[in-house]
Nucleic acid binder design. Structure first.
Lengths: 295, 295
DNA sequence: GGTGATCCATACATATATGTATACATGGAC
DNA sequence: GTCCATGTATACATATATGTATGGATCACC
């Protein structure tokens, strides 16, 4: 007994998705490059084959039925997979070969870029990816990089940015540190601990103060512009550091401070120069990165 | 600039997936209920539209090209989504209404079934799901339940079972317990700690001994047939318990013992009576559970 | 080496889907 | 109320895709 999905007409499925997302047959026809009567018939045939009413025909516009709403979720998954397929297909074309230079923070470069690069090599084998670990937006304006992964929205009008996702972090310290010092029980205790700063301690203090966590500047005992070094310091037990949960999960000796509280959310932006976005190669890597980073 | 995926012929995509999975055009034609020439032309047209060679024609059989292999991954995602769509569509049909009784262990019933039930209500609103928290396979043979979620493969020939996935667990204890006692540093330390047994302590001791973790039977200070009660005991600091990582993740006061070591992998089986599997309603819930549990 | 099974590609007739043109309905602007 | 923009459904001609039939090629088997 084979599943009914193999006997579904996948083009009808595509028609359903487009119609549901556009809210009209005409709109879906425009999006798909077909005509409105075609969409009308495809939807009707699809409903007949499923033996279900997908849309409520209310004169002016179509409305999803209850069943249609449930099915739309699965159809959207299919649309995402189809989009990914299209991207991968572009990546396989040899005429898009060349180098694309991507810049990301050192932590991102070290923690997520290896796997992303691996995925990208599979999906766009013709493209050579050059990962530069810096954190200044100037790289893009000076054309020293093609695409940047950033955690703040860039202001320059010459840049285009797409919000990809959001990462969550918390406060962590090594178990050895917490065993040696008194384990903090309340937010007040935190001021008497050693803190590690990534970058400028003052900027970090202000940031934590904004999270309702005021700390004296003396609390920051060590700092490093290099995020990886700061993180290694934290791992070896030098103090408390706020860091991305995924990074922390890879270090079993790290323990979350006051679990559940003081969560930091930082967005992930994909940025490129507006002129570069018209280059098919860079455009492809941009879209692939958006797909790979946006899990 | 719209994505190229909207202009892809999704039926060609389906043809590609079937051909790649079957290894031949004829096989794909049989699966899809089409003829071999149709598949031949669809694949050729698809390759032309993508401007990519997907298969290497080597007389006897088709072999995926490098590009085809990369694209197959995305196509499989699409196939999965299409299968899910087909299941949801079945669930929306009113003629499949009725009750299905599912039995699962108490921990599973409490931890995963609520969300699964919610998903299932969305995808098959006509079906009333009855969740029974027990762990004996007899329920199925006596027809006291229609479907069982189990962690051992059933032996009875009258039952059909499908392996859905695998869950991973580790040893956990409450932070309060670990603060009060000496925090274990090595595997040897574990024998001097208090252990909590789910079910029969002897069976659990044997199970842990099989994981190269020999414990005296006196180490088990408390036990409960009811897994939830054992878990609550562990959360309140009565000792060490091996438990699923997802369950542990929801209890911030629980800390993993010797992080990374002593991992327990237990399979998830979906079981039903072979006769029941022919009932469309139960068959549907079976497939939906397989889809929902197998993430 | 012959034979049958299996597989892919092509030709041709037919079935199916699509586009064009059109009729009809609705709601907003004036 | 009238006009116009927008949207859906149907008729008809045409373009496209599909099935049937067939030929060629390869491999397993005797």
């Amino acid at each position: 007994m084979d599943h009914p999905s193999t006997h579904l007409d996948w083009n009808h499925l595509r028609a359903f998705l487009a119609t549901a997302e556009c809210g009209s047959l005409s709109g879906a026809a425009r999006r798909l490059g077909l005509t409105q009567p075609t969409l009308s018939r495809q939807i009707a045939a699809f409903e007949a084959s499923l033996d279900l009413l997908l849309f409520e025909r209310s004169a002016r516009n179509l409305m999803l039925t209850e069943a249609g709403r449930a099915l739309l979720l699965d159809a959207k998954d299919m649309g995402k997979a189809a989009a990914a397929f299209g991207l991968t297909a572009s990546g396989q074309r040899s005429e898009l070969s060349g180098t694309v230079r991507v810049t990301a923070s050192d932590i991102m470069s070290w923690h997520v870029m290896p796997q992303v690069t691996q995925q990208l090599r599979l999906r766009a084998p013709q493209i050579m990816l050059d990962v530069v670990a810096t954190d200044t937006i100037q790289d893009l304006l000076r054309r020293e990089a093609d695409i940047a992964i950033r955690h703040v929205r860039p202001e320059q009008p010459a840049l285009i940015a797409r919000l990809i996702g959001q990462k969550t972090g918390h406060l962590y310290a090594a178990r050895s540190y917490l065993d040696a010092r008194k384990r903090p029980e309340t937010a007040q205790d935190l001021a008497h601990h050693d803190w590690i700063a990534m970058g400028d301690p003052k900027r970090m203090r202000d940031h934590l103060a904004g999270m309702n966590l005021p700390l004296p500047i003396e609390a920051f005992r060590v700092a490093s512009e290099n995020g990886l070094i700061a993180w290694e310091m934290a791992k070896s037990g030098l103090g408390i550091i706020p860091i991305d949960d995924d990074v922390a999960a890879q270090a079993p000796q790290m323990e979350q401070i006051l679990p559940g509280s003081f969560s930091v959310k930082f967005p992930v932006w994909l940025v490129t120069h507006s002129e570069l976005h018209t280059s098919p190669r860079i455009r492809l890597v941009f879209d692939l990165l958006a797909d790979l980073l946006g899990d």
